[in-house]
Structure formats: C-alpha cells, structure tokens
Write a protein that binds this DNA or RNA. Structure first.
Lengths: 418, 418
DNA sequence: GCTATTTGTTCAGTGGTTGAATTATTTGGC
DNA sequence: GCCAAATAATTCAACCACTGAACAAATAGC
C-alpha cells in the first residue's frame, strides 16, 4: 500500500493528556534520552536526567526492550563501588528506515537503523534526464528491493520509506517541479502503485514520504552529529542551491513544505538575468554552472557530481581562475547567508552538497560578508563549517527521518508489534 | 524584585510526564481551548474537542474557575432541546499583563487582561533622544504605576511586565544597542532596581521581560486576530525596519533572540552605502528617512510618529513625489520580502508600524516583486495586509505576551493563589 | 569477609482519568 | 399541561500509571 503524505509536525496544539497518553509520552521521553545520550546510559542515569523514578524508568524500559527498540549493552567500565550498570542502547535489530534518492546523474538507496548507523548504501550512476519518471522510479524500486533484502538479512524491519528529489514537492507526494530532472507534476505514489510495498505499515509512520533533497540533507546532518547545534542552516550547492533550516532540533518546513528556496535571493540586482525572472540571483553567481563557467571549465566536459571535486583539485593546485571563481561564489553566498542570519539569528551555517569539498575556499569570503553585514556578529560569532556527510546527506537523511519519527513516537511501532 | 530573563521556549525536549504533570498539562489544554474558541464553549464542547471526558473537563474547569482564570458567561442562545450550556470565557478579573514601551518620541503603557482586552492604555509623547536611560526609565515607571493603579481598580492583578525597546536585547534585559535612542549596553533591570516592583511574583512568569519592539509587535498582531494565520512575517517600518517572525503560533526568536533583522538585506548592492557597512540595504530605500527624503519632505519638519500619516495624506492627494517614493520603497520591500518568503515559505506578510497606514501604496509593488521572485507564488498566493493594531502593536503585544504565558502554563498562577 | 555503594526490582499507596449512571434543565409533541 | 426526548453537568466506583520506600543484587575497597 503506497500511500503518501508530507511530513507534518506532530500537533501544533499539544493534545489532551489522557490516562494512557502518560505512558505513551514517557516511552518517547525515555527513548529520546537513550538516543541523545553520548554513552549508553543506565536506567538510573535515565531516571536522574528525566526526573522520573527508577521504578517508572524500569517499567518503561521493559516495554521498549520487549518492542525491540532498545537493547542492553555490555556494562560500561565505570570506576567506583556499587552494582555495575547495564547500558541501554537503541536496538540494532529492530525497525529501520529506507532512504531513496533520485538525482540528475545517480540513484541511491540506503538503510539506517534506529541508532543512526548506515546498514546499507548503494549508489547507481546514470544520467536520468532522458529517462521518464516512471522508468526512473522503476529502477529505483529495484535498488530499493535489494536494500530491503539486505536489511532483512541483517534482522532489520523496514518501517517506512523516504524519497529525496531535487525539486519542489507538494501534498501527497506530488513533485511539482524538478527543473534539473525535467519533471513537472509527477505523482510519485501513483507511479509506484504497481510495485509491491517496501515497508510494512507502522501506525504513525507514513509508508512513503517524498521530500526535497535539501530538506532531507539538513536532517541527515542533524543526525550525523547529535551533539551539534540544535539550530543551523544547511546550504546544498548543486546545480541549484537549496537550503534546509533546522530549528531547535527539528526541520522547519514552512507552511507548505517549500522552505529553503535560497537560490533566488538577490545578491546583485543589476546583475545577470535569471530564469526565475529576477536579476542577479544567488544561483547566477554561486550555482554549479556559474562557478564552472567562471573557472573556465565546460560543464559538458565532466559529470556533474565530479564537478566539485575537480574544482577543489584546481583550487588546491592554485589555479587562478578557479580561485577567483570560488572567491566570487563565496562572496555571493556570503551576502545571501548574511541575510538569512540577520533574519533567523542562527549561529551555525553548514556548507553541504558540492560546497562541502569547496569549503576551504568559500569560507573566507562567506565569513567576511557575514561579519560585515550581520549587526550582531560582533557579539556572537557565526560558525561556517563543511557538512560531515557531503553529497550523501540527502539519502542518509531520508532514511534517518524514518527512524527519527519512530524515536519521537515509539507507541506506533510498539502497538504494531501486538 | 526586578529580575529579568529573555522569553525562551518552554522546553525544546518535552520533559518527562510525572503523575502530577497530568493535571498540569490538562489545565493548559483546557484553558487553551477556551482561549482559542471563537464563541464561549461549554464544558461539553471542550470535552468533545479535546477528547477528554466530560467528568475530567468539569474537574479541570473547577480548578480554573477557583483560580480566577475562567468565568462562566451567559448561556449562549442555542437552538434545539436539552439543558442549556453554560459558556466558559477567560476571566476578565484575574491576572493581567503590563506592557511598556520606550520609543524615540513617546513612552507607552498598556494593560491587557486574560481575554486579550486592552483595559488601560496611555501614551506620553516626548523626545527621548536627549534623555538619559535612567531618566527615561524613571518616567516610564511613573506611567507604569498609573497603569497598575488603574488595573487594580478594575480588579485585575498584574502578573508580569514586558518592555518593548527599539533595539537589540541581550540576556538579562541588557539593551545592547538601540541606535535611534542612542542607547548602548543599558542594563534595564539594574536601572529599575531602585523602583518598587510593578508585578507580583508568579511562578513561571518572569517579573520583567525586555524585548525588541518588532518581536513584540508581531506577538500583538498574533493576539489581535486569533483566527488569523499561525505563521506570518510582521514587518515594522519605523526609522529602522524590523521584523517579527511567527511560526506555528509562536514567536520565533532565534538562537539568541536577535531574529528579524531585516533592515540590512541587500536590495541594491551597488546602491547607497549604509551605516551597517554594506551597500544598498533595505533600510536605505524603505526606511522612514529614505522615504521622506525621496518624497521631498524634511524629517525635521515633523515628529517621527506622524511622518507616516503625513505621507499617507500626500499619497491620497496624488502628490507625485510621495507616490514615487512609496513605489520605490514598496519595490525594495518586495525584494526583501520575496527573499524571506522563499526562505521560510510563509503565506502571509503583515505590514505594521508606519507601514500600516501606507499599505495601499506599498502593497502593489510588494506583491509584484513577490510574485516575480517567489517560485511557488503561482501555486500558493502570498497575502500582504496591513497590521490591525498599527503603531500600538508593540505595547499591546508586550502586555499580551505576559497573559499568553499564563494561558500556556496556568499552573504557575494557580499555585501562587495558594 | 565485611561494609559501603550503587543498580534494579517489588509492592502497597496515591492522584487523576474513565465510563456509566444520575441529576438538572430545556424543547417539542400530544 | 404533561410527558418524552435531548443535552449539560455531576457523582462515584474502577482502573491505570507513577511514587516512594524497602529490598535484593552485584561490585570495590579495606
């Protein structure tokens, strides 16, 4: 049963707390603490950090272990007297998320378990621009079936699927526009209706979520560094430029899920005309094509996904045109980022996608513009750093978004178990 | 006891649910429903909309009535058989919030009750630029004491104070920079330490909150129209240009509370230099001084708070320079707003402060830029409308932010009552 | 071996919700 | 005018999950 819906926040108005919600909420709280802890915590640790009684935590943990969400790990070596604690970790053999990605020149699939470990990862290169959406999705299903088989072989159960696409996604998985793929109004769930479902129904977890790659890449980055900042801007530099906004540990999606369209912020209003109708948009100065052209490289010469690596090589070798192109791109990016930081008061900007490799050359100009234009930069510095996942952030984030949902609302999975 | 802290979200990680939290949460849920309902709901209505039992709702409502947070209203005339319902409304004689504002040429105080009604409102005009911060605050305390006396005469109890200032506010009420007042690093709580406290201590409600006027104006607008959108951008056009961002019914403050600095978004990078160090900032084209200059008016001729009214008069009379100045300002504002809408995917923009009166002339240019530059505008139109509160939004919002907090967490007030 | 110490479990007690039954109050039909 | 139907609000025994204290388990140090 393919069925799709956008990721929406649980409930803006916190619902009423009924008798049973109490346990439901505490299951989520305890599981969340286990997930967020830097080291496997004991039941007593969880009790201390949540304020619950040890008795309650024990009861809740029993439920979580019975539902294959938590496992006991080896006792962590700890100094001092007393009965040794049994560490609690997220189960490596329970539910898992399947992440898929369609991009201009590759397809990807990836499985992430509850603990956030990548348990399977495949990338298949192919130019998908000449391929019809139906065919592209059919190929993706093949990849997904392999991933599923691998996951089940490892004792995992797929609980949901998330698909990253480089475009605007509307309600019910409708891809409104994916310019670089040449897609327009593609109803992904309908095209997948003929294929067997990849993930069993789990209450509270939508079987298929379709989302923008920039959004999911930001989620991936959030996952990759659990101790990192809870709010940041993740900028993906590909052919287009997209951003994912993470606020207080949650992706901010906007009213209709179309947040993060940063590519058309004006950075040179009297500048080059842009296909969007404006002038001097960021994309015209920091988009992949613009940077390649400025560096004197022809896009046709090299596959899109190696463009960033090629630029990085040239820059590292001191190629003057490449250095100049990157400096100009960084300056344009800095103007846009400064606007975002002024608006949202963020203290961390992550450069992802193609920008990850190029950060050493982009960063100085970005920082210069930010410190020049952000009034508060003097009191609170802004960190600009490369993404830790790089181009894989979107698939990993897609898979991670599935398990993240289970961690946030474990009761759905637990009821499914019977 | 003057003591201050910034408004922070309740808790990013929802805390553990203890035995007693159950009632605590349901008090908030029931009170929230009563506050949000378009008409006074009955206990049965609240039970139906929350999913709680009528028995539970009755018990919770009894607590709320005993704590002077809710009152029973006249039975709403209703068709059909059955025992008539008793309507529940927020009490008009319980806790209230005191809002204060210091601005360039006036001081203001205002009292808002739980229901959001403005029960007291004073504005005192005076040029405060030559006045020292200590003296300005002393005058404000006089105004506040009058407001308090009036409120208590009406049976209200002040539960907290919020102060709006036109500048950047750091931790602990420190005004880092208020350029138009000429303030820098003014520790408001310290300067108020010699004066008697204006609001009694209520658990969970900080006695004094100092915040940016643009932020509080957005809160005021959110309050003024409970049926309005839950997410919007509120742009205040004064000497500077500030914005308040409301997401999902809550003010978004950023990591350090400095969100909304929209005045220095570049709209003409090769344009006029700005005091911020950049070039062609929005403020240089849509700020009050710029618009007045472009319209051929001298700022010294008229008090700042009547500048907008004067411009509106001229525009209504067809004055060519004024119309041209407003069109240019609207265009610049549109460029900036388009960037914000692209980034955050908002569907509503409220023009407040001085812009409220000028909306008829600004709106066309703003909409034109938005529909030109926002890729998704074709699928989902953006509404641009004037603020309903106008220049009073900040004081009203300040007072409203106090009662809002009580509605969100009524248990603090209730325990105070003994 | 004994004590101090910490973890995890057991169990009676309690607070708050639940659901059904009951009371209260009105409309509408005969 | 009286009774049935309908809806609102309250009462009360039952139940669920958390609480707190006591207890068992397991280790380090002396």
């Amino acid at each position: 049963m393919w069925h799709c819906q956008g990721v929406t926040r649980p409930a803006p108005v916190p619902g009423a707390v009924r008798q049973g919600s109490l346990r439901e909420l505490n299951l989520a709280v305890v599981l969340g603490r286990i997930a967020a802890a830097p080291r496997p915590p004991s039941r007593a640790d969880v009790a201390a950090s949540t304020g619950l009684t040890r008795a309650t935590v024990s009861a809740v943990v029993d439920d979580l272990i019975a539902g294959r969400l938590v496992a006991e790990s080896e006792p962590a070596p700890r100094a001092g007297a007393g009965r040794p604690a049994r560490g609690l970790v997220l189960a490596g053999s329970g539910p898992a998320g399947l992440g898929l990605e369609i991009n201009v020149d590759y397809l990807a699939a990836c499985v992430v378990d509850l603990a956030g470990e990548v348990r399977h990862h495949t990338v298949r290169r192919a130019d998908l621009r000449p391929v019809s959406p139906a065919d592209a999705l059919a190929r993706l299903v093949t990849l997904a079936a392999e991933a599923r088989a691998d996951a089940e072989g490892q004792g995992l159960t797929l609980a949901g699927v998330a698909l990253a696409v480089p475009g605007l996604v509307g309600d019910a998985g409708l891809v409104r526009l994916a310019p670089n793929l040449g897609w327009r109004d593609v109803a992904v769930p309908e095209l997948l209706a003929g294929h067997p479902p990849l993930a069993g129904p789990v209450p509270g977890v939508p079987p298929l979520v379709v989302d923008n790659e920039a959004n999911l890449a930001a989620v991936g980055e959030l996952h990759a560094d659990p101790t990192g900042p809870a709010s940041f801007l993740h900028v993906s530099g590909e052919v287009g430029i997209g951003a994912g906004i993470v606020l207080d540990g949650a992706l901010f999606r906007g009213v209709r899920g179309w947040s993060g369209e940063i590519g058309h912020i004006p950075v040179q209003p009297q500048g080059r005309p842009c296909r969007c109708g404006g002038r001097g948009c960021l994309e015209q100065y920091a988009g992949q094509e613009a940077v390649l052209a400025a560096a004197g490289l022809d896009r046709a010469d090299l596959p899109a996904d190696t463009a960033a690596a090629r630029l990085a090589d040239l820059a590292a070798a001191g190629h003057p045109a490449a250095l100049a192109a990157l400096a100009e791109a960084g300056q344009a990016l800095g103007v846009a980022v400064a606007g975002v930081v002024n608006l949202l008061d963020l203290d961390t900007v992550v450069l992802g996608g193609g920008y990850a490799l190029l950060t050493p050359w982009l960063r100085p100009a970005v920082l210069a513009e930010v410190s020049r234009r952000v009034l508060t930069a003097g009191w609170a510095p802004v960190t600009v750093r490369p993404s830790t996942l790089g181009p894989e952030a979107a698939v990993v984030g897609a898979a991670g978004s599935v398990v993240r949902r289970i961690v946030a609302e474990p009761v759905g999975w637990l009821t499914r178990q019977g």
